[in-house]
Computed example of a mutant assay.
Amino acid sequence: MSRATSPTPRWWLTAAALTSATLMLTGCLSNNPEAVGDDDTSTADAAPAGANSEPGEDVVIGFSGPAAGHGWMGAITQAAQEQGDQFDDVELRVSEGTDDVNLQISQVEQFINDGVDAIVVLPFDGAALTEVAIEAMEAGIPVVNVDREFSSEFAARTTILGDNYGMGVSAGNYICERLGDDPDAVVAEVAGIDSLPLTQDRSRGFSDALAECDLEVSHRVDGDFTVQGGESATANLLQAAPEIDALWNHDDDQGVGVLAAIENANRDELFMVGGAGSANMMREIQDPDSVVEATVIYPSTQAADGIRLARLLAQGRGMDDLVQVEVPREIQLYAPVVTSDNVEDYLPHAFES
């Protein structure tokens, strides 16, 4: 089976350029839109510049995230802890990971009561954590929102996101490069949890990219982001689709079950593209006998980046590699495709499923 690296279509390059420009613009916005222009203070006076690696004022940062029962989520927390350990001027307080919304709310409330200098939150449910995040902001504690957005822009000073729509686009681009000359190609999709906006964004990006080469998703199931769910959903999909040319699986942890179902069904006519960028899926890419040809990165460094930015916010510093002196309002990370051509570059930094 031949393997090809998907070149990025011109329309996506244009979109990426526009997104970058938008991020630079949103980085200049105040947390409170009504406050912009209220006085004549220049942004140059708002936050001192300086090398971000230089020690600053000692600060305490609280971190709360979901339970690490998922390889990607475990990597998120580990990277955050390691990042905190790198700074002598940071005391990082990590709450026990939980999928209990009420418990996570109480964790953030405890950080507020303790008077920490900044809070980094990857919410189990962004909407449910919005109110307590607003409380922190109103108490003068900058909040960095990671991955799952709050439902109010007033709940966070800075938000760090993966590019869910871009993941779908990257997966679709790769499949278009492989199958774009076959209008009858059968494309399947194993999504995560359909009720989540991030899943909806991934599917929308995938569909939009396939449309560029006149392909569409013929068969689609959701696997609930678990190994068991991925295996069960894929088994059902394979029974319904006797022939498949390409399959995109949204999540590499879930992909362990997806691969098991493919192997149990003795299906080798298809190729598979993964999502998130786990080490085991990258090793599959290295195996010439595997159906896995690629995976799309969804960075597990988001909370670690959140710790870095929370430190700067708590210390009243900006980012020394930007002309704009303030920490940006929003940062969205890129979703590159990993294939046999570049897997050696990404594997050392991948998480284990």
Rank of each mutant, 00 (worst) to 15 (best):
F351H: 12
A75V: 07
V59I: 15
A46F: 07
D45K: 09
A211T: 04
V343Q: 01
V217Q: 03
D45H: 07
T5V: 09
E54N: 10
G192A: 15
L196I: 06
D251M: 02
A188K: 11
A233Q: 03
L259M: 15
A191E: 13
D208L: 03
A128P: 01
T22G: 12
F111M: 13
D194T: 13
C176V: 08
E263M: 07
T22I: 05
A68R: 07
F124D: 03
G180L: 04
I61W: 04
D39K: 11
D38I: 14
L312P: 10
D251G: 02
V94C: 06
I297S: 03
S2D: 10
E91D: 09
Q83R: 15
S232Y: 00
P348D: 00
A304D: 05
N52E: 14
C176M: 09
F225H: 05
L161F: 15
V190M: 08
D39W: 10
I262C: 02
I112A: 08
A233G: 04
V143K: 07
L179K: 12
L312T: 12
A136I: 09
S42D: 10
A211F: 01
A51L: 09
E149M: 14
S278A: 14
G27C: 04
M272Q: 11
D114T: 08
R317I: 09
F87M: 08
D321A: 10
L215H: 11
A294M: 09
P7A: 13
D125I: 04
Q81I: 14
S152N: 00
G56C: 06
E231V: 02
T234C: 04
Q302G: 07
A44M: 07
T5H: 12
L18I: 08
A156K: 13
R202P: 01
D253C: 01
L179S: 10
I119N: 07
A133L: 02
A235F: 01
G275P: 02
A4R: 10
G192R: 03
M73P: 00
V144I: 15
P9W: 02
E54A: 15
E109T: 11
V338P: 00
L309H: 09
Q78E: 14
G257Y: 00
S170V: 07
P242M: 10
V90F: 11
N342F: 07
R204I: 11
T8G: 02
W72V: 03
D224K: 12
F271G: 01
E231K: 12
E138R: 13
T77H: 13
N164A: 14
R204E: 15
A235Q: 12
D321G: 05
T234A: 05
A46L: 15
A260I: 01
Q302D: 09
L270N: 06
A128F: 04
P288L: 09
M272G: 01
L13V: 13
R148K: 14
T98G: 09
A128T: 05
I76G: 06
G168R: 04
V256A: 12
P66A: 05
A211I: 02
T8Y: 00
A260E: 03
